[in-house]
Design a protein around this nucleic acid. Structure first.
Lengths: 153, 153
DNA sequence: GCTGTTATGACATTGTAATTGTCAATATGA
DNA sequence: TCATATTGACAATTACAATGTCATAACAGC
């Protein structure tokens, strides 16, 4: 029998707070996107490209853990809006690499900067250590939950 | 100009981890529900009833922060499956209170117990203080993000 | 009690995110 | 060269949730 202590209940609550947190976060992001032609899902593509460099659609799909067919839609939107462009892929002739245009890079840089500025406000009152530890908990818990859910499928 | 330090980047990452965390959590919950006739959304109704007692559909909707029409569907499913029942509402004759049946209470108790047991494994290696602090960060950040997103609408 | 307003349940419609399935074209690798 | 895998394109489907509407019924002020 497990000793169901406070620790465990806190963790349970933390995990269940992930949905409200996500919703609040996405609402904020959406608000920050107001005025630009970007959508939240286009933003996700630009962010990955910004952080990890040019990639093919299937590679993006793996990063985002979303099916490639849907990522293709997202990417097509960014292409149509001129935030990204295609260039030759040395590793696969048919699957072009998606890269940020100057416009795309400019806008995603600005958006991320705005978001970080917001985070500076949001984190008010917590120490660097608090935040670092909280992140570590969240990352670890996510990994462990993934492996639990993934088992024996 | 903001000083974009590690703290802020960690917080940004933490916030963006909320989606993967949620997906992993829901996948685990779904797995835990295997074998029962419960769905994830029915589970949500039972959990609120278990924690906060009998409530009307509009009250549940407020708790879950979901529109009452959709909660009505969720509740109807729990009624149809015999996990909940209706009883007279002293405060409103038409809007019955939804309450757990013995079967409903038994199953949600078991599911929560299983989840807490899983949390005991998942939290391995973190101190009570780490978890408590992480929860505090998540709760606070969620509240603050909500208020930011809610402003001037 | 009468009456206007609100709350509720029921149902239909719509929107959006994302998955799944399929197909043809093309690349890749043995 | 040829079998297999990958890719992009597109259609269909599922799931979640919001939104709209309506009739009924409850409530509150008078």
């Amino acid at each position: 029998m497990y000793n169901v202590n406070m620790n465990v209940k806190h963790l349970h609550k933390l995990v269940w707070m992930s949905r409200p947190l996500m919703q609040a976060a996405e609402a904020c992001v959406e608000k920050g996107l107001g005025g630009t032609d970007l959508t939240v899902r286009m933003r996700a593509v630009l962010e990955i490209l910004r952080q990890y460099g040019d990639q093919s659609v299937p590679q993006l799909a793996a990063q985002l853990e979303i099916k490639r067919q849907y990522v293709q839609l997202m990417v097509n939107e960014t292409l149509a809006s001129g935030f990204t462009d295609q260039r030759a892929n040395p590793r696969h002739k048919r699957s072009k690499l998606i890269c940020l245009t100057d416009r795309g890079r400019h806008i995603i840089d600005r958006i991320i900067a705005d978001e970080l500025a917001l985070m500076a406000d949001i984190g008010e009152g917590f120490s660097d250590d608090d935040i670092a530890k909280a992140l570590e908990v969240v990352l670890t818990v996510t990994e462990r939950l993934k492996s639990v859910a993934g088992e024996s499928r």
